[in-house]
Simulated scan of single mutants.
Amino acid sequence: MSETVKIATLSEDGGSFDAYVARPEGEPRAAILVIQEIFGVNAGIRRKCDKLAEAGYLAIAPDLFWRLQPGVELDPDIESEFQTALGLMGKFNQDAGIRDIQATIDYARDLTAKGKVGAVGYCLGGRLAYMTAARTDVDASVGYYAVGIDGLLGEKEAIANPLMLHIPTADGFVGPEVQQAMHKGLDSHPKVTLHDYEGLDHGFATEFGKRRNDEAAELADSRTAEFFAEHLG
């Protein structure tokens, strides 16, 4: 079962934003926040939520671009929409986004018996998943092809709960130097696990479209499933 809910912000000026919620049959094992790519809460992100619900989790995807343009749904395989997405990313206030993620975590904790909440993000969402691990009380986080992590390594000591990052080695948005910095900065961190995917590009685990690589996506998703089963129950 799925629905759209309203979540109040943590900002003093108030406001609220939409979030897509997919619910499992029966009591949820835990809740998992699905953090969007630069393309909004589109069909692919909703499908990620639906699959998590099929696995027994309550999945929730907040509309993080709501301050710029509520309800963004873009297709990365259409060049004009890809360019629109890049423009939105450039305007997006990531600090405000993390506060909205915390608001969503707070909302989701009340929807499960154990109160445990994880997060999984893609692209920009992968970066935000790292920031979520460092700046919120989330119980476990996963980032796929996260961008710009080299600039966030100063926050690694704040990561108190498990974090997994999936890194395609031929990522056109995350060059070899950045990947090397990620490994150098995070390989020894007791809470962080990195997985490399040789020769794969950004977006390999998308649900729909030209970027997907079925074999690698299934491997990464199986690792994510095991990770959440271990850390969320």
Rank of each mutant, 00 (worst) to 15 (best):
S2V: 12
E3M: 06
V5S: 09
I7R: 01
A8H: 12
E12F: 09
G15F: 06
F17T: 08
A19S: 05
R23S: 15
E27Y: 01
V34F: 01
Q36N: 09
I38E: 10
G40I: 02
N42V: 05
I45D: 02
R47W: 11
D50Q: 04
E54I: 05
G56A: 04
G56K: 03
L58G: 05
A61S: 07
L68E: 01
L68T: 02
L68A: 04
G71F: 01
E73S: 15
D75S: 12
D75K: 06
P76E: 04
E79Q: 14
S80E: 15
E81H: 05
T84Y: 11
L88R: 03
M89V: 13
M89A: 15
K91R: 15
D95I: 14
A96Y: 08
I98M: 04
R99P: 05
R99T: 14
Q102F: 08
T104N: 01
D106K: 05
Y107M: 04
L111R: 11
A113W: 00
K116G: 08
K116R: 08
R127C: 07
Y130A: 03
D137Y: 07
V138K: 00
A140R: 08
G143R: 05
Y144C: 08
Y144E: 08
Y145N: 10
G148F: 00
G151D: 13
E157G: 15
E157C: 13
E157Y: 12
A158E: 14
I159R: 06
P168Y: 00
D171F: 06
G172I: 12
V174I: 04
G175P: 04
P176K: 02
Q180M: 14
M182V: 15
K184M: 12
L186N: 05
L186V: 07
S188D: 13
H189Y: 06
P190E: 13
V192T: 09
V192H: 03
T193R: 13
H195G: 00
Y197K: 01
E198T: 13
E198N: 11
E198P: 12
G199R: 02
H202W: 09
A205I: 02
T206V: 15
E207K: 10
G209V: 05
R211V: 02
R212D: 04
A217R: 03
D221F: 09
R223I: 11
T224L: 12
T224W: 08
E226A: 15
